[in-house]
């Protein structure tokens, strides 16, 4: 690509993000949105200040651990359920219905059940896992149905046994959809963990946000939100690269 073409392609997006940051800074600096909107530099300075690292680090450690655990658990359950519907096809309709119902149920509605079933520290993991489960289940089931008819015909004429067809055809065919699901599950897993913390966790970024909101600790509030969204965004970007690689290879 020539410099000109590159400028044409990447110029506006970079400009857009820069303008966004500038607007954030100016609104904060001139108090256009009142006292509760700090300039971007103030939030970054708060994040950079070593004095806050212990507080933010402890909260982030707790939340990110919950996110990781929820993400992995949800992925495992989603994949397991999808495999189950593949193995026992008559079970499909019922599991579809249950998963769709759980998905349509706002996380808050499940909170009382979780509060009864588990400790408050595991609720973020559970809500995160539940939200991830839905996405991965949908991605995996639609992926397992993405096998092309011509490929299925080929494997039948080659005399493939079901297990062989599964490993050599259905699973690779499902990978692109699955990779997309894994990417989309990132923000969802953060959302689940944060909402989960609002139901009485004793530590974490979500809790920090709420306490900062109630106590007018404006830089802390924005710093916690920025830290959460940036981490989610970076992981999303990384999985986006992974998704692109899988799509190139398996489609």
């Amino acid at each position: 690509m020539t410099l000109r073409a590159r400028l044409h392609r990447y110029g506006p997006p970079v400009l857009g993000v820069l303008l966004f940051c500038l607007a954030w800074q100016l609104i904060g600096a001139y108090r256009l949105a009142g006292m509760t909107w700090p300039p971007l530099t103030a939030v970054l300075a708060y994040l950079a200040d070593p004095a806050h690292h212990q507080l933010l680090g402890r909260a982030a450690g707790t939340t990110f651990a919950a996110v990781a655990l929820g993400y992995l658990t949800g992925t495992g359950i989603g994949l397991g359920l999808a495999l189950l519907t593949r193995l026992v096809r008559p079970a499909r309709a019922g599991i579809d219905r249950l998963v769709a119902l759980v998905h349509a149920t706002p996380a808050i509605a499940l909170a009382p059940v979780f509060m009864i079933l588990m400790s408050r520290e595991t609720i973020p993991v559970a809500i995160s896992a539940l939200a991830v489960t839905y996405l991965i289940y949908v991605a995996a089931t639609s992926g397992l149905e993405a096998t092309k008819a011509a490929h299925a015909d080929l494997f039948r004429t080659l005399g493939a046994r079901p297990l062989t067809a599964f490993w050599r055809l259905e699973l690779p065919s499902a990978l692109p959809a699955l990779a997309s699901g894994l990417k989309l599950a990132v923000p969802v897993s953060f959302m689940g963990a944060i909402v989960g913390e609002w139901f009485g966790a004793s530590r974490g970024l979500g809790l920090l946000m709420i306490s900062a909101m109630q106590n007018f600790q404006i830089p802390l509030l924005w710093a916690a939100v920025l830290l959460t969204t940036l981490t989610s965004l970076i992981l999303y970007g990384l999985l986006g690269l992974f998704e692109a690689a899988v799509h190139r290879r398996f489609r």
Binding site: T157, L158, G159, R249
Partner: peptide, 19 residues
């Protein structure tokens, strides 16, 4: 015949596995 892997088929859509 298919189960004995004694059948060869070339399809209209080449049906090569892209990966």
């Amino acid at each position: 015949l298919a189960a004995a892997h004694r059948l060869g088929v070339a399809f209209q859509d080449h049906a090569l596995l892209p990966w």
